[in-house]
Design a protein around this nucleic acid. Structure first.
Ligand SMILES: [Zn+2]
Length: 774
DNA sequence: AGCACGCCGACT
DNA sequence: GTCGGCGTGCTC
């Protein structure tokens, strides 16, 4: 029988002795919305990965065991055997499998794709499966007349061990030696000459953050203010409650949310022995300064993941969580899938931040998944923000979440004062590019310059925030009345001075500026970005040390860190840049913040425009005056009467939330109405149009079949979105909204199934709870 | 998705 | 005559 199994294992041939086999339900890494049944000679616990033969060609794919197969009446001859078990211990806990099923249904992805998103290392692991010689195998390799010398040498052909002193060979390398080598490997396995260079055997390394020395003695907790104590004890109680509602910690910047997080983690560890905590942070605020706060308080217990880690390092850091060597995982969105053994507390900081929404593939919302996971693991979930999202406020209103206010800054620091600088609309003619990119004037209120100058003279620091990176918004060609736009995308190209190029901000396209400078035709430079603001401020404020911060200047790893350090050390007077500057960095000496272009944000054709603008204004204001110095915010606008601006000036979040909730409800927008955005795209318009007209018929057909949809569903489209083409793909949007989740989900499923076979170059993507519908 | 099969047009 | 486009079926 052993040879029979070998055959099954190597060829994936059907199994003939079903009585001895166990049938397992396997999720396979394909976009198919169903699972498959495979057989194996022994039980494999759910959550273990397996290699299975799939499709006519029996190509090897990774699957995850979900449990015993429940499928009845499956023809035995169709069932294939599992090729190989890849995990001794489950990679995914039962809770994670339950979560995966839920996410698959909610986001319209197959369970296999969800599982892949949950363990991004698995793609590499496929390559990494390797075998190494055991002590006995090593002897067989060395001793010429050992009975198995030849079989070992057939696979391990090297004349000496690898640098690490072992003999290890990747499975792919063994396979490439031909079928006899695979047979030899099997034989060696059965003889105990080789064993899997199994991942779980790798010792969990102590997790390090980069440069700094890690502390070894824990820093003592800080004293809490009366208000902090009150909030803290309510969180303590919530953590110990049987049924745990998510807690929204609404705390203005500087009110000491972080200290509460730290003490709550400590309390969680005291309360549940061996429990672990997850701290989600927007990628941009995941700096060494930030993670150090946790490492100081919990030396040796913190594991940090972020996108700059290579696959291996990332795996090590997650493994520390899996083994329990680390008890706190700090990371961005994807850390929500961390392999905790005993999750006791989930903290999602800056929960309003849009970077929590994944923008490709499985488009999940990290905060929402955090809430769900916390619920499934009976862990307390804390959502922290100075400006909670409107979604979260709706959940507070409905009683699903509870809110805790922390609206007093510690040490009685005053909230910054926000002043509106009303600016008359002025028709400005763009400058010609022939003059080069030097003397650009930007429409800045004179008070902004005066205040900045004063601040520099006082030795205090300032931040200036504009909307876009680059020098100017676009180049305008008056002769044709057109802007210079990207050939691949329906957007105008942004003028960049440093690189002397026009760049597309939606793809990698760029074009040299020189052709336009030397052209006989006139081109005008319109609008301004961070580069122009930088050079303008340098000219207006000679002697001031001005540094620009946007994704161009901080693209290099560590660049942002360097600038922020110099700024904290007082080597810089003014930071000018994009919204990066408004997000979660701590600048103790900043007393003046200037927001120059709020109006454009309010004008975006997107239902979240108001929320985004409000968040930017209040978050930016939170950067000012955190230390002993009081801060001021200058808001340059032409719409001083806009309600959103008025709420921001008053820093009245509650009034803003009421207003925005009313607006969303009245216009049937999320969160009161659920929204699904289905995008179709193709490089060829004709094909896309073919699909779109089919889609229109399909929708009519759907409405005929389900009369109730006519009342419960609102269907917009298919229409061309504001940015009609991106990366050479023309797009069409179908936007479904409804107050009835059941109808919305079944309608979306209907469309998904009906469009499962589109022409090969037309793609469909489904975005549930879209962040933006541009 | 991937892969095979099978059916029509056009091209060495 | 065949090469190759893509509609259709199937994946335990
Ligand atoms: Zn482009």
């Amino acid at each position: 029988m052993a040879s029979n199994i070998c055959q099954v294992m190597t060829t994936g041939r059907k199994v003939s002795y079903m009585s001895e086999q166990i049938l397992l339900e396997i999720a396979v890494d394909t976009p198919l919305a169903r699972t498959f049944t495979y057989s194996h000679q022994n039980e494999i616990p759910p959550g273990c990965r397996v290699m299975v033969p799939f499709g006519k060609q029996n190509r090897r794919v990774i699957g995850v065991v979900l449990g015993r197969s429940q499928t009845e009446g499956l023809v035995a001859s169709k069932i294939k055997g599992i090729i190989e078990r890849l995990d001794q211990e489950p990679s995914l806990s039962p809770v994670m499998l339950r979560l995966a099923r839920w996410l698959a249904d909610y986001y319209f992805h197959s369970i296999g794709e969800v599982l892949r998103a949950m363990m991004p290392a698995s793609s590499k692991v496929k390559q990494k499966i390797a075998w190494h010689l055991t002590a006995e195998g090593r002897k067989a390799w060395e001793v010429d007349d050992h009975p198995h010398h030849k079989v070992v040498r057939q696979v391990f052909v090297r004349r000496s061990p690898l640098a690490d002193g072992t003999f290890t060979k990747k499975i792919s390398a063994i396979d490439s030696l031909g079928p006899s080598a695979a047979g030899a490997k099997k034989k060696m396995v059965s003889l105990g000459l080789v064993e899997r260079a199994d991942e779980s055997k790798v010792k969990p390394t102590l997790v390090q953050s980069h440069q700094q020395d890690l502390p070894t003695t824990p820093e003592p907790p800080k004293n809490l203010t009366v208000k902090q104590t009150e909030v803290f004890s309510r969180l303590q109680a919530a953590m110990k409650a049987e049924k745990k509602k998510a807690q929204v910690l609404w705390g203005v910047t500087g009110a000491g949310k972080t200290e509460i997080y730290l003490q709550l983690i400590a309390d969680c560890f005291r309360f549940h022995r061996d429990s672990q905590a997850l701290v989600l942070v927007p990628e941009i605020s995941l700096t060494p300064q930030m993670t150090m706060i946790f490492e100081r308080r919990f030396p040796g217990l913190v594991s940090v993941v972020h996108s700059a880690l290579d696959q291996k390092e990332r795996w090590h850091r997650l493994e520390a969580i899996r083994t329990g060597a680390a008890r706190i995982l700090v990371g961005p969105r994807s850390a929500v899938f961390g392999p905790f053994r005993n999750l006791g507390l989930v903290i999602c900081d800056e929960e309003h931040d849009s970077s929590y929404k994944q923008s490709s593939g499985l488009q999940y919302h990290g905060r929402d998944v955090a809430v769900l996971r916390g619920q499934m693991e009976q862990a307390l979930v804390v959502l922290g923000s100075a400006t909670p999202s409107i979604e979260t406020m709706a959940n507070v209103r409905s009683g699903k979440y509870e809110i805790l206010e922390l609206l007093e800054r510690v040490h009685q620091r005053a909230l910054p004062e926000i002043t509106v600088l009303e600016q008359k609309a002025q028709k400005r003619r763009g400058q010609t590019i022939r003059a080069g990119l030097d003397e650009g004037e930007i429409p800045v209120h004179e008070d902004v310059i005066a205040e900045l100058r004063q601040n520099v003279e006082k030795g205090e620091q300032s931040i200036v925030i504009v909307n876009r990176r680059g020098y100017a918004y676009f180049l305008f060609h008056p002769a044709s009345k057109k802007t210079v736009s990207c050939p691949q995308c329906s957007v105008s190209l942004t003028v960049h001075k440093k690189s002397q190029t026009l760049k597309c901000h939606y793809c990698e396209y760029q074009k040299s500026l020189s052709a336009f400078m030397g052209s006989d035709d006139e081109y005008l430079i319109v609008g301004y970005g961070s580069e122009q603001a930088e050079s303008f401020l340098r000219r207006q404020l000679p002697g001031a040390r001005v540094v620009r911060v946007d994704s161009d200047t901080v693209a290099k790893k560590g660049a942002l860190e360097d600038i922020l350090r110099d700024f904290r050390q007082g080597k810089i007077d003014i930071l000018v840049g994009t919204q990066i500057l408004a997000k979660g960095h701590d600048f103790p000496n900043v007393t003046l913040i200037c927001l120059l272009e709020v109006d454009q944000m309010l004008q975006l054709p997107d239902f979240r425009a108001g929320e985004r603008a409000f968040q930017l204004m209040v978050q930016a204001a939170g950067r000012a005056g955190r230390a002993e110095l009081s801060g001021r915010v200058l808001l340059q606008t032409q719409k001083a009467d806009d309600p959103i601006i008025r709420f921001a000036v008053a820093q009245d979040y509650r009034a803003f939330a009421e207003f925005e909730l009313g607006f969303r409800e009245a216009h049937q927008f999320p969160p009161f109405y659920k929204m699904v955005h289905i995008e179709f795209n193709s490089p060829e318009e004709a094909r896309l149009e073919g699909v779109v007209s089919g889609l229109q018929d399909l929708i009519q057909e759907m409405l005929r079949r389900h009369e109730s949809y006519r009342r419960s569903l609102s269907i917009l489209g298919p229409i061309a979105p504001p940015i009609e083409m991106i990366r050479g793909r023309i797009r069409r949007s179908l936007i479904l909204t409804s107050k009835e989740p059941k109808d919305l989900w079944s309608a979306t499923r209907f469309i998904q199934l009906s469009c499962s076979r589109l022409p090969s170059d037309v793609r469909m993507k489904i975005d549930v709870d879209p962040q933006s519908i541009l």
